[in-house]
Design a protein around this nucleic acid. Sequence first.
DNA 1: ATGGCCATGTGTCATGGA
Length: 255
Amino acid sequence: MLIATWNVNSLNVRLPHVLDWLNEHAVDVLCLQETKQENSKFPFQALADAGYHAIHAGQKTYNGVAILSKHPIQEVSTAIPGFADEQKRVIAATINGVRIICAYIPNGQSLESDKYQYKLGWLKAFTEYLRSELALHPKLALLGDYNIAPEDRDVHDPKAWEGQVLVSAPERQAFNDFLGLGLTDSFRLFEQAEASFSWWDYRMAGFRRNLGMRIDHILVSNELVANCKASWIDKAPRKLERPSDHTPVVLELEI
DNA sequence: ATGGCCATGTGTCATGGA
């Protein structure tokens, strides 16, 4: 099956892109971030018409995560248990026997910001949540906007970004802690072009000049590594009119 | 050419994104 993640930066604006993309690629599972709408506004019907079940944890203006699936969605969870968070950033479900966790990890803004402290606290709680989920579900995939570029090769200009948010040592440590739990960056299981990115700033002609970052990831548990057949970033939606600043990341799983 | 965007709602600016 094909699973994918895409930060759409407003599903209200991007729904036509999402429907077109689903129609073209027929992925089995698509995790969305930054839907930026309440559940009552979520386009359940349009997605059902396209052949997709959907679950959504939304809020007005900010955040919001969803999982779309061609297959039945089971064991839904919409938060990190025991972690009080006003922001809708996590939704999880079991699909075809695979635990799918869709996450929108906080941005952090800058190292001096309160939002950075929130990000680090969030990552700590999320890591413990992942640990418990992995114990319950050996077949697990974590998809989403991590707001972390794990290595320098995931950054267009590592010198310019050195020590900044998205690449700082504590953030990269948190990413490595995920790996330490028994997760693997599926994108790097396969040969990839240099300067492969999933996000480009709207400003400074970032996309045209490929001034991007790879911050959207699909991590898989050890038990799924052998099932991974291919992974790629689909840059096509980033070329459309009124694009999201992120583009989809896809993993082919032999399930 | 060293700037340059976009979405939202509180709305014609401020805030957040990354």
